[in-house]
Nucleic acid binder design. Sequence first.
DNA 1: GACGACTAACCTATCAGTAGGTAGATTGCG
DNA 2: CGCAATCTACCTACTGATAGGTTAGTCGTC
Lengths: 183, 183
Amino acid sequence: MQDKREQIEAVATAAIKRAGIGNVSFRTLAEAVGVKSASVHYHFPTKSDLAVAVVEAYAQTFQASLDRVDRKFGSGEDKLLAFAKVFEDVLADENLCLCGMMASEVMSLDEATRSALAQFFRDAEGWVAGVLKQHSAELNAELPPADIARILMSGLEGAILLDRVELGRARVRSFRRFIKSLF
Amino acid sequence: MQDKREQIEAVATAAIKRAGIGNVSFRTLAEAVGVKSASVHYHFPTKSDLAVAVVEAYAQTFQASLDRVDRKFGSGEDKLLAFAKVFEDVLADENLCLCGMMASEVMSLDEATRSALAQFFRDAEGWVAGVLKQHSAELNAELPPADIARILMSGLEGAILLDRVELGRARVRSFRRFIKSLF
DNA sequence: GACGACTAACCTATCAGTAGGTAGATTGCG
DNA sequence: CGCAATCTACCTACTGATAGGTTAGTCGTC
């Protein structure tokens, strides 16, 4: 049995990906890991502390999976298709990206959480732009890498957002074809 | 002074665009229009009734603005740029598209609201696909209209979602350049 | 025109449930 | 012992929802 703190973080992450941090309560988290809500407050004094911790942990996990993609695939096309697959996998569990979900709740988040969120999106877009620059020889596109990176990152976030309404995948798949058309 | 029911609907729409339906209560709506919460329940017996009414009214307004775009602009490029501008204007008020916001809350919505939402997205994508087909002669794109329509609709939803976190417009503007690159 | 029936639009009061958060006691381990 | 982790017990605030009542206006009929 892992650390309670880590358990809480894991359960919170899963719950936020489904329903947002507004629908996650200290009580339900406590019940899920078998403690009382006061104990959750011991590890995360306020909801903001929990939010920041969860976003930072998610950002780290996300970056790790992008690093794996970098090592596993050689071509720019394969790397970006693997990037799209990360989103498709999130959708398969009827989840959203944790940060995409929290972005929709940004008006009820404090500054610390907002800047952690913004950092996540910038880093992800930075990775995509890096791939595009590194493989610019293979590339067949009019737009600069920074634009394509923003289109892919925010586009895939929007795609899983809309696809989840109908439990489909049509939009993520259109983005896969878009990626293929770039090369 | 307009109808109380319409006032409630208008205030609810504005509040949902900012913070989602999960952060809208019958009490705050009531206070905003100067009645008691029980009176809001009179017009909208349950929160689901309110949600459906608001989505359907929003869909109607949205379609009306697309119709105006259709009449006002001649070229496919101008029409799609005007489409993107609709989203940029939403973002200017630090809002999300009402339906994009509610899509993030889909797990706590009932079936009636979900299908109203899905209908909205299908209609909007249908309009974009229609423009693309109608102006296929001007078009310079590899992908079929249905794919481009999904990319633009879900992409712009994602763009305002992410841009709002930093109060910027970088991502919506990348989509504007993407539209220009299609022609 | 007057009168009863009906309805729309609101009200007060209250409910059970849940939210985030706190104080202080208890437990168990190094 | 001392400290970390967890507990019990509670608070205040707010949620959606309901019951039952009031007011003002409309409508059909004699």
